[in-house]
Amino acid sequence: MYLIDRFWICITYVLSCLTPSPFKGIGGVEQAPFLASSGSGSLHHRNGPIFKPPGGRLRGPGSNFTCEYPQMVGWSFCSTPENRACWLRNDETGAEYNITTDYEDNNQTPTGITRNYVIDLTDHKINADGLDFPEGKIFNKTYPGP
């Protein structure tokens, strides 16, 4: 069975090398497939990177959270399990948002989607390990917080 599968893979590979690409136009000019259009009538070719953050929850509350940078066209997610130092990289210039980026400088902050959260922090008596701690902090009326 594996021999037949390998044979067909070889045949399709040879045929794909010998036939012209459907995305090459007249004179070798590159063409792109027709993509979804935006509401303004112009073609929407590509958005910026949208990805699940490294170490994000796989299941349960918060598992659907994604990092979205729709205005950063030409940038891609560059973090890998082996190297978490790089987060976003410009495909053309090689510029990066990484661990050394000054994110407090608004000129160096990536343009993404702003999310606002409301956290209610209050003082409350906590008995987490059998001893009362009268000056404990609780978030959204729960300990540990959300």
Rank of each mutant, 00 (worst) to 15 (best):
L58N: 13
D91T: 11
A36V: 07
T109F: 12
F34I: 10
F51W: 07
E92H: 07
C86W: 01
A36P: 02
V73E: 00
A85W: 01
M72I: 02
D132T: 10
I50E: 08
T80N: 01
L121G: 08
F139L: 15
A36W: 06
T122I: 04
Y2H: 15
S42G: 10
I99S: 11
A85F: 10
R89M: 10
G112V: 03
A85E: 08
G27P: 04
P49I: 01
N98Y: 04
K137H: 05
N116Q: 13
F139K: 14
F77R: 04
Y103G: 02
N116I: 08
F51C: 01
Y97P: 01
E30L: 09
P134T: 12
F23C: 12
L35A: 13
G136A: 10
N127Q: 13
N140D: 11
S76W: 05
S76Q: 13
S16L: 09
I113S: 08
S63V: 01
E30A: 07
G27S: 11
G48L: 00
T122E: 14
N47M: 02
Y69L: 00
E68K: 09
N107F: 07
N83Q: 06
V29L: 10
N47R: 01
Y117I: 06
D102H: 06
P110F: 05
K52E: 05
V14Q: 10
C86H: 05
N140Y: 14
S63A: 12
L15A: 15
R57Q: 09
T19V: 06
